[in-house]
Nucleic acid binder design. Structure first.
Lengths: 211, 211
DNA sequence: TAGATTGTTAATCGATTAACAATC
DNA sequence: TAGATTGTTAATCGATTAACAATC
């Protein structure tokens, strides 16, 4: 039965997809929740519940049809129909993201990149780097709905405002700063500082208990 | 009163720090939970509780001393004493992370980078790129406890195993794959696919309701 | 004193886990 | 049939929010 999916579950779905695809490559045609759970270090019941919310279900004693699950997950995650996006800030990180092929697989299609410094485009990047003055116009013309921010923190809000004014509805923010947006706009922070906080605390504790 | 800090709270701490530092720059010497909450889009009570768990507290009617809070947060997050780390996988993303100055501010010090392809070091990177054969040895010699994985997904587990065998206790994984580690090792996934899932669903919903 | 603001204790909410019924 | 496995309903757990007491 298809239920509404919590944020927590939603975030686990790509992991399931990964896991199932690798099982598929090994020609494993059906799979139990137990196997998936063990492979990802999750609880068996949690896996069953998560999968129930996006799939048409499995069969007792048999499990799930791997291929069907993969298809259901990809469909749910929107990997089959791609979203166009722009990226603002073609520094090191921005360029790294631009040349990452994997995004296409996730249904993300970066159609243009912008920077103050115009157009020093790299060899293995598909998109041109355009002057930031043309950002708003292009977003409107191409009806861009996703903006990726990889500018320095001080300019992030400014860029964010332009994107929002130009019709962007979802922002993926790599700048280490909090962005202010209207209520209907989603900001997803790729929060490196938060990750480091978690790593650092684990380390402190481990080193302490080893003394 | 210093309490134990939940993961959720821990992840918010860098945001508080950011916010407070910018207030400090504007010479705002005391600050109420309400101000911080509004600035970050959080609940006032949540902010008070979070701050209570790392700070020596504020004064009724006055609020918190900005400078003290900044210091307490930095101390708690370990920004004052830095951790050495290695990075494995000097592709686009790896190089981007290597040349990001900001990590030092967070107490992360990348002392070496590794790749199969040896040593094509970039201009504005401080560290050399070493052959991956020397990874284990260096980790042991320098007692490295943090490993950053930016290799392609297929090689991530392999690299992870080497790191764990060489004494690394915490792993920051940028490869889109789940890593298997012993129970005492922490893996933090920088989960781009999960972020995209959240962005994508928001978009689907918005576009649907606009029809 | 009055009022703003902190901090704590209790209530609510949501997510995870456990127990169990259904079924192939 | 027996047993493995799904899926659902109930219980638990943890985090957030609300209510309130403390205090400058």
């Amino acid at each position: 039965m298809l239920q509404s999916v919590s944020i927590q579950t939603l975030q686990r779905l790509p992991d399931y997809l990964n896991c199932l695809k690798s099982l598929l490559q090994r020609n494993i045609e059906t799979v139990s929740a137990k196997i998936v759970a063990e492979s990802l270090g999750l609880g068996e019941i949690q896996v069953r519940k998560d999968l129930a919310s996006v799939s048409s279900g499995g069969k007792p004693k048999v499990g799930y049809v791997t291929r069907d699950l993969v298809r259901d997950l990809e469909t749910y995650l929107g990997y089959h129909d791609s979203h166009d996006a722009v990226l603002v800030g073609a520094g090191k990180l921005g360029k790294a993201l631009l040349s990452y092929e994997g995004f296409r697989e996730y249904g993300l299609n970066i159609v243009a990149a912008f920077d103050t410094k115009g157009s020093e485009s790299d060899d293995d990047m598909q998109v041109k780097i355009l002057p930031v003055e043309t950002l708003s116009d292009l977003c409107r013309r191409l009806k861009i709905r996703i903006g990726i921010i990889t500018v320095p923190a001080v300019h992030a809000q400014e860029v964010c405002d332009i994107l929002v004014q130009s019709g962007v509805l979802a922002i993926w923010n790599f700048a280490p700063t909090h962005l202010h947006v209207p209520g209907n706009i989603l900001v997803r922070n790729e929060n490196m500082a938060a990750s480091l906080a978690i790593l650092s605390r684990h380390l402190s504790r481990k080193l302490l208990e080893d003394q």
